[in-house]
């Protein structure tokens, strides 16, 4: 589904990614782990066409490197930014509307689905999104992207700073996303949740992939965890 090879990314003159290679299969859930600042967010932004990048990005067999972000989105890639990037002055309902690419609801997800998964959002449907709690904003960011019916969704640090109860809700949503045939590329800090829901994991260090394997491989490899993950 997604094949990234030899991806380099730049912010102005600083060279952040040094040849990243990764793949995500059809319906697969893959996690991208690593310490702060190693370039995980930059990787998905580069795939999305949001930063200057060189190298090849293939989606559904088609080269999408060099396309603009809105064109990449129309190919079926969804992006859930970090920091719960909701539109604060718009209502929950309006935020969800903006997730849709056209005016008609179609595809895997409807607004009712979202409200069934997160009744909290329905209660606050006509409230300005800026006053929602952190957890509610995270749900909204995710649901907003799903409204665009992506075939692969890239989610950047969704559980950061959230209460265990809400993390549990999100975990259920990830499983539901996968169940509906949507692939996931998840950037996570919490090793436990990544090990539990992913089929494969990548570990990043200094702008490169330093480990690739299954959850069992990573559990068994204490050296990698110690060198690249534990603080």
């Amino acid at each position: 589904m997604l094949e990234v090879s030899d991806l380099h990314a730049f912010y102005g003159k600083s060279h952040i990614l040094h040849g990243v290679n990764l793949t995500v299969g059809d319906g697969e859930c893959v996690s991208l782990l690593g310490r702060n600042g190693v370039g995980r967010s930059t990787t998905i932004k580069a795939v999305m066409g949001m930063v200057d990048a060189k190298g090849s990005v293939k989606f559904k067999g088609e080269e999408i490197g060099g396309l603009k972000a809105y064109q990449v989105a129309h190919k079926g890639l969804g992006y859930v930014p970090e920091n719960r990037d909701i539109f604060p002055t718009l209502t929950v309902h309006q935020n969800l509307l903006l997730g849709m690419k056209g005016t008609k609801q179609s595809g895997r997800w409807s607004m009712d689905d979202m409200f069934r998964l997160f009744p909290r959002l329905q209660e606050r449907e006509h409230t300005a999104a800026g006053v929602l709690s952190g957890g509610e904003q995270q749900m909204l960011t995710l649901c907003r992207t799903l409204m665009g019916d992506p075939d692969l969704v890239m989610i950047d640090e969704p559980t950061e700073g959230l209460a265990p109860k809400i993390v549990e809700l999100l975990r259920e949503l990830f499983i539901e996303i996968n169940r509906r045939g949507v692939s996931i590329l998840l950037v996570e800090q919490k090793l436990a949740i990544a090990l539990e829901i992913s089929q494969r994991l990548y570990v990043m260090g200094h702008g490169q992939i330093v480990f690739e394997g299954t959850p069992e491989d990573l559990r068994a490899n204490a050296a990698i965890r110690k060198e690249w993950l534990e603080v």
Partner: peptide, 18 residues
Amino acid sequence: LVIQAALTHPDTVEALGH
């Protein structure tokens, strides 16, 4: 709505396909 959202978050709006 797209304009209102893009006033403050142009990148996010674009990544949603606008």
